[in-house]
Design a protein around this nucleic acid. Sequence first.
DNA 1: AACGCAACTGAGACTTAGTGTCAAAAGAAT
DNA 2: ATTCTTTTGACACTAAGTCTCAGTTGCGTT
Lengths: 203, 203
Amino acid sequence: MGLRERKKERTRAELQRHALRLFRDHGYAETTVDDIAAAAEVSRSTFFRYFPTKEDVVLFDDVDPVMERVMHGLPDGTPLLAAVRTVLRESFGSLDDEARALEEVRMELARSVPQIAAILRERNAFAVEQVAGMVGPATGRDPADPEVLLFSGIVLGARHAARARVEAGRAASYVDELDAMLGRLGAGIPLADEPVRARAQSP
Amino acid sequence: MGLRERKKERTRAELQRHALRLFRDHGYAETTVDDIAAAAEVSRSTFFRYFPTKEDVVLFDDVDPVMERVMHGLPDGTPLLAAVRTVLRESFGSLDDEARALEEVRMELARSVPQIAAILRERNAFAVEQVAGMVGPATGRDPADPEVLLFSGIVLGARHAARARVEAGRAASYVDELDAMLGRLGAGIPLADEPVRARAQSP
DNA sequence: AACGCAACTGAGACTTAGTGTCAAAAGAAT
DNA sequence: ATTCTTTTGACACTAAGTCTCAGTTGCGTT
């Protein structure tokens, strides 16, 4: 790995590090791209060469390839739900220390800066199609099959639920919470047959 | 309703109508707020007085109050899943002609302009917390209860799945598709126990 | 009918995100 | 050392979004 490569890597990391720090200390909207660039001692242009938008500097790194790998390592015949649970747990769990630390800061940011929570929720809510693209082939079905899409949607839903718990400060670890949610799915859809009491609404 | 109110209503509708038309004809990014304002014959300032951001001009109108009303009209003891299904079907189904037509344009736009599809997916993916805020009280539980959140997430997931089908051009009516998805949920989580075949991946 | 109040609107200045160009600087290769 | 390529910085430009202020217009009062 040449000097050029290492320098690029360092610049990218610096930009991200300073950005997250500034967001945490002064807020997301209050921090301009100029501020970030100045803190990392590069020009504004350089910032945009590394991150297409200001939001991107906060986003998760791509975990897709890892998930693919874990999926391939599973024994044939594993039930789909269990397979997905394993894939998510393993791939998130296998992040190295640096990535995990970054994740920590991001989560803390998501809790303290509402705007960042919104960004993470919106941008990182990976599309149903993405999950379906994995589930379809694994079960030998069309990714556009309604049941494949519904299953994928449910997995996403569990993800949303887990994030909601973490953002509300009710759960410490996102990975554990997501795992727990997928575990609950093993017993079917919770509360599906629970009777509603229309009158029980509070003001 | 005074003249002022009616005028406001008309201005808002005009802005939205022209915006959607311009987006459809020239694309989302290519249409500036100035263009929209000019077409609706108001000033740029006025546009932002009606819609906080350019994106907002595309978004769904708030259906919350309608949903609340339908929910209250349900007989006590209705199973939760059935209740939610009814609420969604009824509240979307009860839109007046104008709203339904607007909806039609929006869906067409979502299909032809990828950027708008993204906006709808992101912004209108109403938060888990919102659904949980309805489900919680109806079942006499804390909206932060993990099972309440998971159930809410699943409903959202079905919504994502339905939208994916519509966007892919595989389903004509969003309302019907969502209803069908929720119907499928009645039989539990589809494909949960389906065996995966890791080798069955295509390149 | 005229008055004053409050809400709505338009004009325009300003900040910042994001894009594009071009020339200078710095690493890599010969 | 020289040439080639990649990276960078300076700068100009467009458009979104915010803010202020002055002018207008509907609305209730006297």
